[in-house]
Design a protein around this nucleic acid. Structure first.
Length: 622
RNA sequence: GCCCACAUAGCUCAGUCGGUAGAGCAUUUCCAUGGUAAGGAAAAGGUCACCAGUUCGAUUCUGGUUGUGGGCUCCA
């Protein structure tokens, strides 16, 4: 019998130093585990930092070292959980209960202790206890969070504990072979985190960190992070004069002319898409009497997220959603089954009183405009409508170049309206549609809207944070609550099903994502300014103005720069504004009635006939 | 809302171990008319987020408020 560690030294000596664990079948095992007799080196795979699995393991072991350091400094620390992360403010964190409030000032001290533990190079070992023994062990140490974790495990579970020097922790494992493998270790953030993710529970302190086998990798990680932050939509929004948010209107956007150009272009774009799919656009009020929201269920379930105002002793709510208003329109005039599916669309301006701590640039705001629509249909029509919507979302997201779209099915939440039978049918309908369309999706239990389950289409920002954008939701409740009905083919009155759906989600969030996706370099059709005309000197001002007029007559967004600055300075400004094309005009161009055109990101200039350039621009419109 | 941090000129940031502040860029004016990432000079620009407290004196220290950033919870 020999350990995997010994086997690797013998069979794969080149991997001896890099090996973190082995993988046998689907199972990851510590290097010190015994290999079966007769193992030749073919029955396992060596896990190194080069794979995601290896990274996760490495980072998970890092969390243990962090805990060990914290325990050495503050012996009264109680530990909850310390997982590895593939994205977020660190590679791992540990949730800790501790009287001392940890702040960034403590990081140096903790890091120094980590460094000590690394240099002590403790071998990491494992022991297994029966559940009752493990419970007794952690109870005796008053590790109440660990006790809670163990209590949830099955009676027969073998509970493993890992130790390294003076520190032992409850852990499924496996772990790296020793504490000496960490070449670089850095704490990155501290925050509060509710125990078990429940806001009614006490708050633990969550320390985040990153770690690598060597320092070079840490440096390149920091560099990549800095690069990502250059794409931040809040930074670019300021630099490119797209929008701003005021202290007097937290979570509400002042769209500047350039940002609003993107906004209106997106509206035009989606209008064209919806018209082809037989949607009809409408517009409804922003505030409505409380009684409407009582009927819809919002008053009962969504009130804490709503803004209210009052007039003549009546309470009005600023709409957080458009659905009740759309049902109100549906209810005007008697509808027949022949009218269904009826698709009512609105760029609906919604306000939600989101908790202050959740606001985030354009991604999470209190006032936003949804590219909303409600499809009133029969139950038999749900499948086709959902399928068509999935096609639409894919078509649109492809147009913007998104290829990393997360699809989730969110099912009934605790706070909800409607019967369980209706929820069963609604959830089933979405599940069938997802599978029919062969989408890769994951289940998101308990995260549906209060009136129905939803499919969510989420996109990632520059730091890989996930934001829900598109959605479609099946609602068997609200039409009935608000008295919607239609005359069926047999003459009876029936309640329609309502599908709530949005492709962008909200224009604010979608533009936030777009800014980061494009790093501020918008395609021609979306660019606030598509062409900058740069004159070389005053001699060509007239020609420059003529070209400006010509391009504007052709519908393009053009900026004219005939200031007395030198051309090098104008080129620099043009570059920084990330405008698609620079048209440089001097005596040569004026004489030949040509354009010297430079494209964003290109170094060389190409000579164009005027019409030729107009055609080039036109070819890039949507 | 909760935890940690931050708030100085239009922007990006220095700075003051407590004696009311500085740079670069941008702005304005003047000179320069220059061919693809910054020509030169001058001027102007700040209740150091807001409100209290300590102090002879607070932008600096303390407390609170508001906003922002990173998380948690919650959401498009």
């Amino acid at each position: 019998m020999s350990t995997y560690s010994e086997l690797i030294a013998e069979k794969q000596p080149s991997l001896r130093k890099k090996a973190l664990a082995v993988k046998v079948g689907d199972q990851l095992l510590d290097l010190f585990r015994e290999a079966p007799n007769g193992e030749t080196g073919d029955g396992y795979k060596v896990v190194t930092f080069d794979t995601d699995e290896g990274k996760m393991l490495f980072w998970h072991s890092s969390a243990h070292i962090l805990a060990q350091a914290v325990r050495r400094i503050w012996p009264d620390a109680k530990f909850d959980d310390g997982p590895a992360l593939m994205s977020g403010p660190g590679h791992f964190y540990y949730d800790i209960y501790l009287e001392h409030k940890i702040s960034e000032e403590d990081f140096a001290r903790i890091e120094a202790e980590v460094e000590k533990i690394v240099s002590e190079n403790h071998t990491i070992s494992r022991r297994v206890l029966a559940k009752s023994d493990a419970l007794a062990h952690f109870q005796s140490q008053a590790e109440q969070f660990k006790v809670a974790i163990i209590e949830k495990l099955p009676e027969s579970a073998e509970i493993s504990l890992y130790s390294q020097g003076d520190f032992e922790d409850l852990c499924r494992g496996p772990h790296v072979p020793s504490t000496g493998v960490f070449g670089a270790f850095k704490l990155t953030a501290i925050s509060g985190a509710y125990w078990k993710g429940d806001a009614s529970n006490p708050m633990l302190q969550r320390i985040y960190g990153v770690s690598f086998p060597d320092n070079k990798m840490l440096k390149s990680y920091i560099q990549r992070l800095e690069e990502a932050k250059k794409r931040d939509h809040r930074k670019l929004g300021k630099e490119l004069e797209l929008f701003h948010i005021e202290p007097t209107t937290p979570g509400m956007v002042y769209w500047h002319p350039k940002g609003y150009t993107i906004y209106t272009e997106l509206q035009s774009y989606i209008r064209r898409k919806l018209a082809l799919r037989n949607y009809q656009e409408l517009h409804t009020p922003t505030i409505a009497d409380k009684t409407l929201w009582e009927k819809s269920g919002h008053w009962e379930v969504f009130r804490e997220n709503m803004f209210f105002t009052e007039s003549e002793e009546k309470i009005f709510a600023v709409k957080p959603m458009n659905c009740p208003c759309h049902v109100t329109v549906f209810n005007q005039g008697l509808k027949s089954y022949r009218d269904l599916p009826l698709r009512l669309a609105e760029f609906g301006s919604c306000h939600r009183n989101e908790p202050s701590g959740t606001l985030h640039g354009l991604m999470r705001v209190r006032a936003f405009t949804q590219d909303d629509a409600h499809i009133f249909c029969t139950e038999e029509q749900i499948q086709e409508e959902v399928a068509n919507f999935i096609d639409l979302v894919r078509e649109v997201y492809t147009d913007f170049g998104f290829n990393d779209i997360l699809v989730k099915l969110s099912t009934r939440p605790e706070k909800r309206v409607g019967t369980d039978e209706n929820w069963d049918r609604a959830e089933k309908a979405l599940e069938v549609a997802l599978d029919t369309k062969k989408l890769d999706w994951e289940l998101n239990p308990g995260e549906g809207a209060f009136y129905g389950p939803k499919i969510e289409f989420s996109l990632r920002d520059c730091l890989d944070r996930v934001w829900q954008c598109g959605t479609i939701q099946v609602d068997f409740s609200m039409p009935g609550r608000l008295g919607a009905e239609y005359v069926a083919s047999d003459g009876s009155r029936k309640t329609p099903v309502m599908l709530h759906r949005a492709v962008f989600g909200s224009l604010e969030r979608f533009i936030g994502i777009l800014i980061e996706e494009y790093a501020g370099k918008f395609p021609v059709w979306l660019s606030p300014i598509q062409v900058s005309i740069l004159s070389v000197n005053e001699e060509v001002n007239d020609y420059s103005k003529e070209i400006e007029k010509l391009l504007k007559e052709n519908g393009f967004r053009v900026e004219l720069n005939i200031s007395s600055d030198k051309i090098g300075y104008k080129i620099r400004e043009w570059t920084q504004k990330k405008i698609n094309y620079a048209v440089v005009l001097g005596a040569r161009e004026k004489d030949g009635r040509e354009l010297a055109v430079r494209e964003r990101g290109e170094q060389e200039t190409k000579s164009f006939q005027i019409q030729e350039f107009i055609d080039l621009l036109k070819s890039q419109l949507k």
